[in-house]
Amino acid sequence: MSSDHHALPHIETEGNFEFTNGKFAMWLLIVSDAMAFIGFLGAYMVLRISAVGEPSLTGLPWQPAWSLPMDLILTGLNTFVLICSSVTMVKALAALQDGNQAGLKKYLAMTMLGGAFFVSFQYYEWTHFVHEGITIQGMKLVDLDTAMTRGAAAGNKLTKLEMAAQMYGKRRFEGTPDAPAALPTGKGAQDFRSGNFTEAEYLFLELAVRDRANADLRPVQGGIIHHTAYGVPGTTNDPKGRTGRELQEELEAAEPAQRGSVIQAHRAAGSRVASLFCSSFYVLTGFHGLHVAVGVLYLGILLIRAFQGAYTRANSSIIEVAGLYWHFVDLVWVLLFMLIYLI
């Protein structure tokens, strides 16, 4: 029992690691931050895998052909800027370790500029998306012609009818796609012929509404019935100030012949189709962008202190710790860029 005292004449000091408390704590913070990203990425993974490949009764494809395609080249350049800022960060540390104060300031400033550029580009990308009707709430309804233009720009070769199927839901109908047996007749057909909306658009609207009339309360494909002016009340900009729900009720109550004008009201009101792609895109890039923004502030403080001559070789670990955070943000972007933009 008492052998312990005699067996250990020397004192073990496991507490003496070479690294500073700050460096260890930053690694721990990185672990916990990584876990937060893993939470979001896990959600992204599940939602994306379970998203249907093509329009179905319960959902949109992950990124429908008519949604705004992302500009890979521009975002790739932005990624390049972030990698540059990562290498300038290690250069700053190396300069400090070599006793090169001017180099430290120069490289810190470059790192900060790189980060600021990255956030600014992200801001530009977001505003561009919002301008095109893609928000966290979903995708704005576009008309078939715009959808065709966007689809062509993204390199897909859908026919107009296929595109309408993507937008309004694929429905089984009799006849061939080119000569469907369920073409509307009567008053609706007149309306159709009067050119208010296209053949495919009318067809799918008609079928979608009929599905609901058959007491099938499952949601039909997003597009017309399942537009949403989501979340925050008053986001529609309908001239009459109707909410998304009121518009929907109006649509369901309207005579078939009147529905075309209701749909146009929806478009005017900026109704959106809820989309998991949109939700994930904004939350993931937003969370990452927040990290970059925080990093830019962090670097800014370091830069001011560097101009005051606060850093020497002896306390270079302060720069190293900031670098750890910055490289972690870069590392996460490698993952996000691959998962969101490339795959």
Binding site: V87, V90, G323, H327, D330, L331, V334, M338
Partner: peptide, 14 residues
Amino acid sequence: ISVVKILFIARYFM
């Protein structure tokens, strides 16, 4: 490719 990039960032930059 991403895993390789991440490994290099973690091992050299970090």
